[in-house]
């Protein structure tokens, strides 16, 4: 079975600034890949390279086994949903969805029928007669989804489609995107800067940094075995605590010059004196997030964040003992940032 999308050695330069510096990526047919990264990492450039909206300076792009590097966007059979302005404001919802078919010469009747079907599939059949300015933000993106789907594209490209929606809508829409994908099975590349969206949505996640893929893996892999210090700190809210290997936490077998990482979720905070196992720290600040609380601790010269149940949270100024189980520790090369295997890690596998 051919892959849905293959990028090989893709470089892209915007003006004089390189936006993509050698992307090698294979997306399986029917897979939903999330591209995650901060702004400026090259996420949109990656999508635009696939769509052909920006011409790549080196490398190849293949869609469904077909080399499309030299093809114009219209010949690549891809659909795209943008952050905003995903609809043409002068057309009704029905005409927007039918737009592509009409452009390609389908007759009005047939295009309208397919538009209606596509609208029904994303639950916006009742909006067909409206115009974009009469829709809410969520409805607009839903219609944009229908517009993109109706083409039955080989690859479906979503460029932060949820970025402008409010939090609740974002959550429900992402469930919906996932549901639509599962129903249609179209190869999809979804770009986001929101790591929780990436975790919830993706079959796999590609973490992008400065035009390169820092890590490509399932959400579990990215979460549990971040390949670099960068991925570790970017994924998670808040990201992983990073401490020098000769700092307060000292697991066995770590080389000097490495850095240790631990997710806030894995930091245990116990009232000082109840155990001697662990480092002594002081609570500086506590943020309550409903069920959980983020405890900002100072361990000597180092700041550490712990995520604890809100019910058992310490108070600011408390002296506490901080404990981390060995299997939850990650080590990274202090210079390259690359992951270094720890003995404990080997044991958990």
């Amino acid at each position: 079975m051919t892959a849905g999308l293959i990028l090989r050695g893709v470089h892209l330069t915007r003006g004089t600034i390189p936006a993509l510096r050698g992307i090698d990526l294979t997306v399986a047919r029917g897979e939903l890949l999330v591209v995650l990264g901060p702004s400026g990492a090259g996420k949109s450039s990656l999508l635009r390279a696939v769509a052909g909206l920006d011409r790549i300076t080196a490398g190849t792009v293949a869609i469904g086994g077909r080399d499309v590097t030299a093809l114009r966007p219209g010949q690549r059979n891809v659909s795209m949903v943008f952050q905003s302005y995903s609809l043409l404001p002068h057309l009704t919802v029905a005409d927007n969805i039918a737009f592509g078919h009409r452009i390609r010469g389908a007759d009005r009747r047939a295009a309208a029928d397919r538009a209606a079907a596509a609208a029904a599939s994303v639950g916006c059949a009742d909006l067909l007669a409206r115009r974009p300015h009469q829709l809410s933000g969520g409805e607009r993106q839903r219609v944009a989804l229908a517009r993109a789907l109706v083409r039955e594209p080989d690859v479906f490209l979503l460029d932060e489609p949820l970025a402008h929606l409010d939090a609740a809508l974002r959550t429900s829409m992402r469930t919906e995107i996932r549901a639509v994908h599962d129903r249609l099975g179209t190869t999809t590349v979804h770009v986001t800067h929101d790591q929780s969206e990436a975790m919830a949505l993706g079959d796999r996640i590609a973490v992008l940094r400065d035009g390169r893929i820092e890590q490509l893996g399932t959400p579990d892999e990215v979460w549990h075995r971040p390949r670099t210090r960068y991925v570790a700190s970017f994924v998670g809210a808040p990201g992983m605590n990073l401490l020098p290997a000769d700092g307060p936490l000292r697991p066995p077998g770590t080389a000097a010059g490495a850095e240790l990482g631990v997710r806030p979720e894995h930091v245990t905070v116990i009232a000082a004196g109840s155990t001697t196992d662990g480092a002594i720290g002081e609570v500086e600040r506590v943020e309550v997030l409903g069920e959980d609380a983020l405890v900002h601790l100072r361990l000597g010269a180092h700041a550490v964040v712990a995520r604890v149940p809100a019910r058992t949270r310490p108070a600011p100024g408390d002296r506490v003992t901080v404990h981390v189980a060995d299997e939850h520790l990650h080590a990274f090369d202090a210079i390259t940032g690359e992951r270094i295997p720890l003995p404990a890690e080997a044991a958990t596998r």
């Binding site: 909206l53 966007p73 219209g74 010949q75 690549r76 995903s86 043409l88 737009f99 452009i103 083409r151």
Partner: peptide
Amino acid sequence: LPPEAYEIAELEGARAGQVLRRVTLPLLA
């Protein structure tokens, strides 16, 4: 005019004439 409107048309494979008639002119109307 938003570049996205043109990108939508480009992705659908619209020719210059179609872009003018179906995107530019209606938006400038």
